[in-house]
Design a binder for these strands. Structure first.
Ligand SMILES: [Zn+2]
Length: 509
DNA sequence: TGTGCCGGGTA
DNA sequence: TACCCGGCACA
């Protein structure tokens, strides 16, 4: 396997997107292609979920003619799923050079498709059926199957790799396979791999092996009939993994910390200070790539372009908050040590996360923030890639930019759906090298982008240092709830709990 | 004073 | 179970 080669390479770039409230990730090599002009090979991988809300997880890896991950001269690579899938097919690497930054003028140029368009269907919180329109065709679930944990492990859609034959030009097959392998190795090469949730881990491995087998057989399908993926994830929440997953459920004692409740696994490597963070705001509207540097700008963008509101009207009900995400881009150059770090090191095995059933009555509501930190010694001017990405709805794309020189492996991604109805995506962080932090912010968070930062906190459920409890009532969360967000006049947009004067389900603390 | 939501009530 | 609302705590 060429993982070593990959790992030793100088840099690579990948775009990831995730858009599912569900779990039970399954892998799917969606596209492996080669660009004659750029000389790069690109592979993208979708994670299709057995759930009714399939998501995608998209990567692109540039490979040079030798099949090694290609140096990426540019800065961060920001790719929405659509962008990756479409543009990759056309100009693979060229599109990957897109960076997170874009001025507003440019942004508005790029997003006219939605001007005057109605908002996200229904003008209210999207419902699942509406969300379907935003899913990618490859992930549709026409059978309506899905949603039950029993199905999560079965890579139905992913049991077949749709690899159009014309894409596999004979001369490029190897490189394409290489790209696919590189991609999949990102998710399998890490020693954590053995402890990641089995379905996820297995799928990546399957993708990998399928990629390779295809190089000789030319057949891009493989049989998964013998896959005995565990149908029911075993309950975790004991041992080390609880560090990660309990973070979100520690309750009041970390009420303020919940703002910075990073859904991450502790990174033993001392992290970089977050002193050169730049916060960018990305429009999450479908097909809209707008990235602005100010929240007001992106709010105005969403309001005017997508929500069809008057630009100067101040009747902002906060709805635009749902349609952009904030990213923190670390402009530091973080190179020391990473490239020499061994990609493998012992790690405590972790139990797979649980995948409780999502509440059916509420639209999927996902708030996810990811932080990637990587380094490219080649691009001292390149920003690096520390991005916080947030989306409020499961179907919205979480795109992640990766650019790194160090061996990068994302051992696993898993989606955790606690009882509060929020979907939580988490990655196990490798013990060395880049880390991915997924955090679950709340609305207050969203409104105070500079406060939460990327401080990696270690929460222990047993931590005795709480905010003192006064009385039996839970201290009120800081997040704006439906009532405040939508106002009394849009009461029908509230979540049911809010309508019933119960604890808000949509904006949990 | 507005907001969040507990607790209790009704259908 | 779905829904409503009085009333209280909190900001
Ligand atoms: Zn609510």
């Amino acid at each position: 396997m060429n993982s070593e080669r990959l790992l030793n390479n100088k840099s690579w770039a990948a775009g990831l997107s995730y858009c599912s409230p569900a779990s039970g990730l399954t892998g799917d090599i969606k596209h492996v292609g080669h660009s004659e002009s750029s000389g790069s090979t690109v592979a993208s991988v979708d994670i299709t979920q057995g759930d009714s809300s399939p998501g995608s997880f998209l990567c692109a890896v540039l490979l040079d003619d030798n099949g090694a991950p290609k140096e990426h001269p540019g800065e961060g690579v920001a790719q929405s799923r659509n962008e990756v899938t479409n543009e990759l097919k056309e100009k693979h690497s060229a599109s990957l050079n897109k960076i997170c930054e874009m001025d507003e003028r440019d942004a508005q140029k790029r997003s006219p498709a939605h001007r005057g368009n109605s908002r996200i269907p229904g003008d209210t919180m999207p419902k699942d059926s509406e969300v379907a329109g935003q899913r990618t065709e490859s992930q549709s679930d026409p059978s309506g199957l899905g949603g039950s944990p029993e199905e999560w492990g079965h890579p139905r859609a992913s049991s077949h790799i749709p690899m159009p034959g014309h894409r596999i030009a004979a001369g490029h097959a190897d490189r394409e396979v290489m790209a696919a392998a590189a991609l999949t190795s990102l998710f399998t090469s890490h020693p954590l791999g053995h402890s990641v949730p089995e379905p996820t881990n297995r799928v990546w491995k399957e993708s990998l092996s399928a990629s390779y087998s295809s190089s000789t057989s030319g057949n891009w399908s493989w049989d998964t009939s013998d896959q005995s993926v565990p149908s029911t994830p075993s309950p975790p929440l004991n041992g080390d993994i609880s560090k990660g997953f309990l973070l979100s459920s520690q309750g009041d004692d970390i009420a303020e910390d919940s703002e910075t409740t990073h859904f991450l696994f502790e990174d033993p490597i001392p992290r970089k200070r977050k002193n050169s963070m730049k916060v960018m705001f990305k429009c999450l509207w479908k097909n809209c790539e707008t990235v602005l540097s100010s929240s007001s700008g992106i709010q105005r963008h969403v309001r005017t372009l997508h929500l069809g509101r008057n630009r100067d009207s101040d009747d902002s009900d906060g709805e635009e908050d749902f349609y952009y995400s904030e990213m923190e881009v670390n402009v530091d150059t973080l190179s020391e040590g990473l490239s020499s770090l061994a990609p493998t090191s012992p790690i405590t095995p972790m139990a797979p996360p649980i995948f409780p059933d999502p509440p059916a009555s509420e639209p999927a509501h996902v708030t996810v923030q990811a932080v990637l930190r990587f380094t490219s010694p080649l691009s001292q001017s390149a920003p690096s890639a520390l991005c916080h990405i947030r989306t409020d709805h499961a179907y919205q794309i979480l795109f992640v930019i990766i650019q790194a020189s160090a061996p990068v492996s994302i051992p696993a991604a898993s989606v955790f759906r606690p009882s509060d109805g929020e979907t939580r995506l988490s990655w196990q962080s490798p013990p060395v090298g880049p880390s991915i932090q997924i955090r679950v912010p709340n609305v207050a968070d969203r409104r105070q982008p500079f406060q939460h930062a990327t401080v990696t906190k270690s929460h222990t459920p047993a931590t005795p240092t709480h905010k003192p409890f006064t009385g039996s009532r839970k201290p009120r969360g800081e997040a704006k709830k439906c009532r405040k967000v939508y106002g009394m006049e849009k009461r029908d947009m509230w979540c049911t709990a809010c309508r019933w004067k119960k604890a808000c389900q949509r904006f949990t603390d």
